[in-house]
Computed example of a mutant assay.
Amino acid sequence: MLVLSKNYGLNKILGEYKMIEKLIEISNYATFNSLKFTNGNNSDWDGNFKKNTIIYAPNGTGKTSLSLIFQAIKENDSNLIDKKRRISSDGSPKISILSDGTHIQFDNGTWSQKNHLDIEVFNSFYFEKNVYTFNLDDTFNKFIIENDPKLKEEVEHLTIKRKELIKLRRRAKIIRRFIKLAKQDKTKAIELATKLNTTLNLKSRMTENEQLNKRIDKKSSDFDKLYQKFMSNSHLISEQFREYCQKINDILSLFNDRIIINEIKPIYSKGGHSELSPTLIYTLSIDGKNTTLQDRNEVSFDYYLSDGDKSAIALASFLAKIEIMKNLDKKIIIIDDPFTSFDSGRKQRTIDLLAKLSCKVSQFILLTHDRKMQVQFSH
């Protein structure tokens, strides 16, 4: 259970910017059986969040799980909550949070409404995705594209072609299912035909299937050529990517002057969802020795870097992303245990960076297992 919350600084006037006001309930989720702040409980915390809030709790008591709730709200993701269903409970997860007078609730496997909060979350899951490569989330990717007209034009064109291909593949999948049903179960085939608003004509559907396969082959070939041309363009490295890289290096220099990011390359995956979001592959200069993108196949950063170095890279990538994005004063920042494998010097520099950040954003919430850090940060 979360055992202490330390609030500091002045509360912003509610309504000026959207903020998280109060945690009302967490039930059947992770380590939480039934945590409610409606009529009081045995915690030292009343569930209220202010402009800046520090929550202290020992390891294994639910800090990262709490950060995942905010991440799920940010992404409108129900799966993140379902995956953390309490093992020892038969009930479904239930979550209730108050924000600007509105209840954000998770019940029966769904969120009650879409997210209206501008949330950014740093936790162990962000760390895992942003040590060896930088994975751009939808919010950051949109910011990058919107600020690079040429890149935006090409990404939008590629996205349209990709959606067309996905639509054809989905239609072909339905038709194949229809043909299979028509041969095995005519009653179900009729039901599917009615649902699709089409006729029960096996010959016509088989003809359509052949035509769809030809169109898919053509569209797929055209898309592959377009994608290869897109990936070969040098302007793919936008100024925003370069600025992001420089910001990361500026922050990294506060932790370790031995490591410099010296080359980046965005990789846009062709598979998965219809939207194109890049992963940034990067190279490092370590003790003055440069690696290249080709070296990434031979050089393992996992062995070259200490755990503290990896933590510094992940944290620097997060803080750099926040710094270069607009509307910083509207953002809600959630930081979960940023001090992993840091010595006292790196911890203090982290505190200094986060303290400055907390003054610039709409709301800042720090979760930590380190009581000394909690005391230092609040002062």
Rank of each mutant, 00 (worst) to 15 (best):
K219P: 00
L367P: 01
L23D: 04
V361S: 11
R171P: 04
T198D: 03
S221V: 14
S358G: 08
Y282H: 09
L366Y: 01
R258C: 03
H379G: 13
I81P: 11
H103R: 07
L2W: 01
N147V: 10
G109K: 08
G91H: 10
S274P: 04
A189R: 05
L200S: 02
V155D: 01
I54A: 09
L328F: 04
I332K: 05
I313L: 12
S253I: 07
L252C: 01
L293H: 12
K22T: 06
S238Q: 01
D309F: 04
L202R: 04
K163L: 14
N135W: 06
F143E: 02
N297Y: 13
K142W: 00
D100S: 12
I69Q: 11
R205Y: 13
D307C: 01
Q246V: 01
E146R: 14
T64V: 08
F140C: 04
Q113V: 05
N297R: 13
E164L: 14
S67E: 05
M19L: 12
V155N: 05
L4W: 00
K150L: 13
F125S: 11
Y56F: 13
D148Q: 09
N123I: 03
L328P: 03
T102S: 07
A193G: 03
R176F: 12
L276S: 08
S285L: 02
F241I: 12
Y304L: 13
Y17H: 14
Y8N: 08
L35W: 11
K6L: 13
D295M: 08
G15P: 05
K129D: 15
G60K: 07
Q228H: 08
N327F: 10
